[in-house]
């Protein structure tokens, strides 16, 4: 996979992992870890990303297997560039399970708050 990925301004990246206790996918964000990939911190600098990855590795009480992977800037936050990461962000294609249900719940909550 993309563990050797080096982010630049032209090819930024995000840090992602799995939640230790429950196993779901998480992304490093400003205030820790989030299950919403759109909130992920986008790294454009190798040194800063390396430091963040070291920090993530040090949080093994929270997450499993953190790695840095390419992403691109999207209108609503970072977006995946590879289909594997797209599936990780969406959930399986055969059932409406996984992260897509969380996203729907967030969207519904936001809609009801309008």
């Amino acid at each position: 996979m993309s563990k050797a990925f080096v982010p630049t301004a032209a090819k930024p990246g995000v840090i992602t992992a799995n939640d230790l206790r429950e196993g779901h996918n998480v992304w490093m964000c400003e205030d820790g870890w989030t299950a919403d990939p759109a909130r992920a911190t986008l790294f454009e600098d190798e040194a800063i990303a390396d430091l963040a990855l070291l920090k993530a590795v040090g949080q093994s009480n929270l997450v499993v297997g953190p790695y840095l992977v390419e992403a691109r800037r999207g209108p609503n936050g970072p977006e995946p560039t590879h289909f594997r990461e797209a599936f990780r962000q969406r959930g399986p294609s055969n059932y409406f399970h996984g992260i897509q249900t969380v996203k729907q719940a967030v969207t519904q909550t936001e809609a009801s708050n309008v």
Binding site: G23, V64, P92, I99
Partner: peptide, 13 residues
């Protein structure tokens, strides 16, 4: 965990 059949997969354990 692997000795007990527990994998970490794409979305979950």
């Amino acid at each position: 965990r692997l000795m007990n059949g527990v994998y970490l997969q794409l979305h979950a354990y």
